[in-house]
């Protein structure tokens, strides 16, 4: 008889997309990742935030199977990325940071060609429409703008109908309108049940897309959770400012009532603010060891 407990890790693997325990990676003297833990569930949109050089890209590239780790336990869709199989790769979509390849092929040729790599690819025409490149389908990639090229990258990331999609700083260099369109695209994929791991520098992007975020600094996760409550954001003191004063308080409503009485009605220049995700983020990444 096999004890019931023996089956538990498998039951967990059914719902866990990414499991990381004690991940470390060192480049020469630099400890890029120093004991990182991460758990991402299937169907989640998860954002990884962090300054350049924090270990963000190294971590993601280890998860994608591009880099070898020094130590730690890593499972991505139940597989060790250091021993990738074609079947495993077929379930993954990867949108890399920068690429200038296939410049002489048209959008349609490139997407059709990549579709052939996957056992159950999406319809190339549908994907082209989804990323908004229908009008550019027969244009060579070399002639596209930066934002259009990025959409080709995304199209190639999703053409294989992935269970898990990695997006590495996907909207860098986008204008605000293109970013909104891109967000809609990602929300659509998430609604279809695709697990999405996003790294980004833009905190509004993380807040708009992700249910959970993790902040990486100095090779570790310094905070993780719902962006609305990250780092005690929801319970942090509110800041009440007015024409000639400033108070940090847990009870801003009472402060405003008192002020209203003092000024006999309208308080000049009144504003109540709570820390933004950016405030929290900056505190987290600047905190000493």
């Amino acid at each position: 008889m096999v004890p019931q407990e023996a089956y538990r890790p498998d039951a967990g693997a059914m719902t866990t997309a990414i499991h990381v325990r004690g991940l470390t990676k060192r480049y020469g003297d630099v400890q890029a990742v120093g004991g990182l833990d991460l758990e991402i569930q299937k169907g989640e949109v998860f954002a990884i935030l962090g300054p350049n050089g924090a270990g963000k890209s190294t971590t993601v590239e280890i998860l994608e199977g591009y880099r070898k780790r020094d130590s730690g336990e890593v499972r991505v869709l139940g597989i060790d990325p250091q021993k990738p199989t074609r079947e495993w790769r077929a379930k993954l979509g990867i949108v890399l940071q920068t690429a200038n390849d296939a410049a002489e092929l048209t959008v349609r040729e490139t997407i059709r060609h990549f579709a052939a790599y996957y056992p159950m690819a999406r319809d190339p025409e549908e994907v082209i429409a989804k990323v908004g490149l229908t009008e550019k389908a027969d244009v060579r990639i070399r002639k596209l703008s930066g934002g259009q090229r990025r959409r080709v990258d995304v199209a190639l990331g999703v053409i294989g109908n992935p269970e898990l999609l990695f997006l590495d700083e996907p909207t860098t260099g986008f204008d605000p309108e293109a970013r909104r369109q891109f967000w809609d695209l990602i929300k659509g994929l998430a609604a279809e049940g695709t697990t999405i791991v996003l790294t980004t520098h833009y905190l509004d992007e993380a807040e708009a897309l992700a249910k959970r975020v993790a902040v990486i600094a100095r090779g570790r996760i310094v905070a993780a959770g719902d962006p609305a409550t990250l780092g005690g954001r929801a319970t942090a003191k509110a800041k009440v400012t007015w024409a000639d004063g400033l108070v940090e308080t847990d009870t801003p409503t009472r402060t405003v009532l008192e002020l209203s009485r003092r000024y006999d009605g309208e308080v000049p220049g009144l504003a109540i603010t709570r820390p933004t995700l950016e405030d929290i983020y900056l505190t987290l990444i600047e905190a000493p060891e």
Binding site: R89, A99, N100, D101, A102
Partner: peptide
């Protein structure tokens, strides 16, 4: 050139043998 412009990296991330 393929190695530098991202061709190889992109291909290595697909199930292409």
């Amino acid at each position: 050139i393929d190695r530098e412009d991202g061709t190889l990296k992109r291909l290595a991330g697909t199930p292409m043998p």
